[in-house]
Design a protein around this nucleic acid. Structure first.
Lengths: 123, 123
DNA sequence: CTTGCCCATGACATCGATGTGAGCGTTTAG
DNA sequence: CTAAACGCTCACATCGATGTCATGGGCAAG
């Protein structure tokens, strides 16, 4: 399939797909005229990229982690594993931050509800 | 206290504190010469702002939620409550995304470990 | 062949929180 | 009084993923 179809299937814009390739997250074969050709595996790969990007990872981290394009080497795998563990820790820490924020928010919501209840009583 | 001390106590840069004020997240009284004056309450408020910013909320959302500066009005409180519920849903959804990413990452880590184990066996 | 749609590359714009630096007043310690 | 340290405002820079536009080539149906 060409870029338009991959875009339609994944929801990633053509612009983004080209950017992923430029950043080394995605490899494509090219038709004789230079157009990018993809297969079903690429759909999966893009889905994974989207998952990671949505989690706030940088394209650089993703490029280091996902041995998508090249043959896996022991050295590469070791490096990838290091990055993965680092990113995993970051994810966990971010989840904790979000959870803390949500609790703070719940507290504010409570306070706000009380205020409104009191205002209603007074009226 | 002046801005330097608040900065030291909260870890937010002076630049950030002025920005928070400009965005309506923080109010300060001014000395006759125009310098910002803060008290202990401001330390708490900045901590809350930091919690929310770290969770990816925009200053605009925070400004709408936190009735920091002005007297609470019923209308304002209703609006704030709407924003809060919206932000809470966003937080929950983001937490879900992060959790999904972490699971995908765990899977990749597993695959990577297996590869390395096999490579070690082969050697 | 031509029209219409898809694709390629490259350049510039965007958003939001923060860094940084200039130029100038204020406060405080010696 | 003076110098150091701090504060004020304004303006410009930054980062990263993406949008958008310009210019030009590729391909299929009429």
């Amino acid at each position: 399939m060409r870029i338009g179809e991959l875009s339609a299937r994944t929801g990633a814009s053509r612009r983004s797909l080209r950017y992923y390739e430029q950043q080394g997250l995605l490899v494509s074969t090219r038709s004789p005229s230079g157009q990018r050709c993809y297969n079903d595996d690429h759909v999966q790969r893009v889905a994974l990229i989207q998952t990671f990007l949505a989690a706030g990872m940088s394209t650089m981290s993703i490029a280091q982690m996902v041995p998508c394009m090249a043959e896996p080497t022991t050295a590469k795998a070791l490096h990838a594993l290091a990055v993965m563990n680092h990113e995993r820790a970051r994810l966990t820490s971010t989840i904790d931050s979000l959870t803390a924020a949500r609790e703070a928010l719940d507290h504010l919501i409570e306070v706000n509800r009380s205020f409104l209840a009191n205002a209603a009583d007074a009226a």
